[in-house]
Design a protein around this nucleic acid. Structure first.
Length: 461
RNA sequence: GUGGUUAUAGCUCAGUUGGUUAGAGCGCUAGUUUGUGGCACUAGAGGCCGUGGGUUCGAGCCCCAUUAGCCACCCCA
């Protein structure tokens, strides 16, 4: 049998894991700085918890888990027809792998509503699974890093989430633009265009504007039966240019006839004002860019919509989020507004690698390898080894004494910066011979001073 | 779900109109060098040419099927 991975899944080797951890920890630090608390939920949920939450398309992509034991028993008992897979499914599967982190979060909030302090701010960084066909930047198992706050309608939450984006990407060294829009403005557009009931089709098509251009968007809208004069109303809105405040001013004129549209404009103005001249919040690097074609597919968004893109690099979105007024309503808890964001960790990884933005120097992993040529020498080295570890310095000893060449190559390949020799001569004089591999520089360090080992090389760097 | 494309050594890839024993670079193992790696030189290991059928005197190469990977669409992160 040839070993292989399931389609759309990946192994992460030591280097990849270290780099992924760097991304995750950067995100986690900011989440926690802003008062978000960690939550973890099971890999599997009841199938009924998940179905119907992601649309027909989404339901198809949920990984179902086959019941244990005689999973066909119920099918036989009810003599069910195999021609109706959707009717058979609940008989053979009652659990499924989580599809995202938002629905499990909503379930958690509803189940624990009495215990939680609202506004409840949680973050969650866990893998999710989708039975999608894999392609570039798309996997069947991938990690989401979500932060959501529920129980508060204040736009300050949005502003803080924008700050989190800004600070994370600033730390990662990746300049980004944060695209903002508001679902109410899209509703307003549909309203003044005379097609309020076609909001979904309108937004799905409009969202592709920067990717496929206006003509293709028109084509798609026409295909979906959106009338020509509606398109004529919408086009000038998408063509608005200038500063964010300038765009909003022009938009205000165009959306005069729509109460909901004007509400959206008010919300955006309030959000932007946090970062404006009168505002109190700062951005380190990110630019906020009002993008009136930004829609995002998720239908549960009701207010602010956010999306993050790397500046000057064509690479799709690396994060997104938005406000939803009634996420927990599907589980019977009404009137809990919320807003959340998500980091696309796998895409951030790809882009940092592409832009060469991962820190070069390795700060984790073994610092010192103790080499030895003979068993007696190796055993002497065990004393040194334990002293190093007791001092909190990651150290290892080559288990079988062998040629130094081999031990050097091991250290080199593993990225261990120092190699220690502790042979008969060193034992006699109570020192450790220490070599820095990158420079070739070598010094004798008194055994008692072993915990300060790195300071002997500090002046170089 | 729809369409395109690829499959030869651990990796990246050559392989002529079908012709005898399928190659290179990198990597790997060992040696030159028994307390000092990276360089160099030398030698070696490693392939059912994705799988199954067909055409042919003869197939890595042509035909059919199948599986898997990659890419695009749909959708999404």
């Amino acid at each position: 049998m040839k070993p292989a991975l399931p389609k759309g899944t990946r192994d992460f080797g030591p280097l990849e894991t270290a780099r992924r951890r760097y991304i995750f920890e950067t995100i986690r630090n900011q989440f926690e700085l802003f008062g978000y608390q960690a939550l973890e939920t099971p890999a599997m949920e009841n199938l009924t918890t998940l179905t119907g939450k992601y649309g027909d398309e989404g339901d198809r992509l949920i990984f179902k888990i086959l019941n244990s034991g005689d999973f066909l028993q119920e099918v036989r008992e009810k003599n069910a027809s195999l021609d109706a897979p959707s009717a058979i499914l609940p008989m053979i599967s009652e659990k499924a792998l989580r599809y995202d982190l938002t629905v499990p979060f909503a379930r958690f909030v509803v189940m624990n509503r009495e215990k939680l302090a609202f506004p409840f701010k949680r973050y969650q960084m866990q893998p999710v699974w989708r039975a999608d066909r894999p392609q570039k930047g798309r996997y069947r198992e991938f990690w989401q890093c979500d932060a959501d706050v529920v129980g508060s309608a204040s736009l300050l939450n949005e502003a803080e989430l924008i700050q989190i984006y800004d600070r994370v990407f600033h730390q990662l060294g990746l300049p980004v633009n944060i695209l903002v829009n508001n679902r109410k403005i899209l509703s307003g557009m549909a309203e003044v265009a005379g097609v309020p009931e076609r909001l979904t089709e309108l937004t799905v098509a409009l969202d592709k504007l920067d990717k496929i251009g206006w003509e293709k968007v028109v084509e798609e809208m026409q295909q979906k039966g959106i009338p020509e004069n509606a398109l004529k109303t919408i086009e000038p809105i998408t063509r608005l240019s200038g500063s964010n405040t300038g765009k909003l001013q022009q938009l205000e004129q165009l959306l005069q006839g729509s109460t909901i549209g004007l509400a959206g404009i008010r919300e955006l103005r309030e959000l932007l004002s946090f970062f404006g001249p009168e505002g109190k919040l700062e951005l380190l690097n990110a630019k906020i860019d009002l993008d009136l074609s930004l829609a995002r597919g998720l239908n549960y968004y009701t207010g602010t919509i956010l999306e993050v893109k790397a500046r000057n690099i064509a690479f799709g979105s690396i994060g997104g989020g938005g406000r939803y007024d009634d996420l927990t309503g599907i589980f019977g808890l009404q009137g809990v507004p919320g807003v959340g964001i998500s980091f696309g960790a796998d895409r951030i990884y790809d882009i940092l690698l592409d832009q060469n933005l991962f820190p070069a120097s390795q700060t984790t992993g073994t610092r010192i390898l103790i080499a030895s040529l003979e068993i007696s020498e190796r055993n002497d080295g065990l004393v040194l080894l334990q002293q190093l570890r007791n001092a909190g310095i990651a150290a290892e000893i080559f288990p079988e004494p062998t040629k130094l060449r081999k031990q050097f190559e091991y250290a080199e390949k593993k990225g261990i910066p120092y190699l220690a020799l502790y042979g008969p001569d060193e034992v006699k004089s109570g020192v450790v011979n220490l070599k820095k591999l990158s420079s070739g520089k070598q010094v004798n360090v008194p055994l008692e001073a072993i915990h300060e080992i790195e300071s002997y090389f500090e002046e170089e760097s």
